[in-house]
Design a protein around this nucleic acid. Structure first.
Lengths: 138, 138
DNA sequence: CAGCATCCTATGCGATACTG
DNA sequence: CAGTATCGCATAGGATGCTG
């Protein structure tokens, strides 16, 4: 179907039957997926795990600003959606490894392109903001 | 630099100088850009405007669940970042047209790939969630 | 038609303290 | 080491009513 199923015309709009506003919540693929990967830390963790698996403490050091609460929670959410896999090694003290699943890797492919775009065009955006803010519309 | 500058190793982690946690806020391109496009409605509006320009009321009908408050605000934010352009036609009553800028289109290119992925893999994700939730870890 | 102003709630996220 | 449990706040976003 591609994204075209969402874009213009009558796809997610006109419904002359007068029912189903079923695009709410988990029924809209775009929102359902974006909602997850758009968390404050999800993409950073994707990047961190893209190259190779890492342990909890490693991820913590790689993304220094994250709180352990959010690290735990974000990892759980990503695992729940099937993007990453959690493996516990019953050593003492325990060690836990997180790695991307095939599903996660397949998402990261297009996603990484967006992240590259972000890095490449960050300056343009900051410029645009400056222009907008200084045109007296603030 | 690409996304690799963010991923593993010492890029955004180890800083033996012991200063700058400057990745906070608007200095991290990934977070700065993602923060915007990850709003609840941003991607839907991107899709809506990708094909052709639209007026306020049209967008409202294309994304029925959005409140006009959020429609206005999201459009303003996207305009501020330089993704879309707002043109007022001084007719009576007034009409306003929104259209993608080149910057917006260039972002939508990689972004649309993610949205296509979302549509294509939505089922897998819902499955993964089901499995996770039913494995008694809920 | 295309908004702006106000009020209110839900929740994402951070800080801190405790555990197997 | 790799978490869990509480508390608290800031803000994204919804509902409603008014305007040029």
């Amino acid at each position: 179907m591609t994204a075209a199923a969402h874009s213009q015309s009558a796809s997610f709009s006109a419904n002359n039957d007068g029912e189903r506003s079923d695009w709410d919540a988990g029924n809209c693929p775009v929102r359902d997926v974006m909602n997850q990967i758009s968390g404050k830390w999800s993409t950073l963790l994707f990047e961190a795990l893209a190259a190779k698996p890492h342990r909890f403490g490693e991820l913590r050091r790689m993304v220094p600003d994250i709180s352990q609460r959010m690290l735990t929670q974000t990892l759980r959410d990503l695992q729940r959606d099937g993007y990453i896999e959690r493996t516990v090694f019953p050593t003492k003290p325990p060690s836990v490894e997180y790695r991307m699943t095939p599903l996660g890797s397949s998402l990261f492919e297009p996603l990484s392109k967006v992240l590259e775009w972000a890095a490449a065009n960050h300056a343009s955006i900051k410029d645009a903001r400056k222009v907008y803010d200084e045109s007296g519309l603030a």
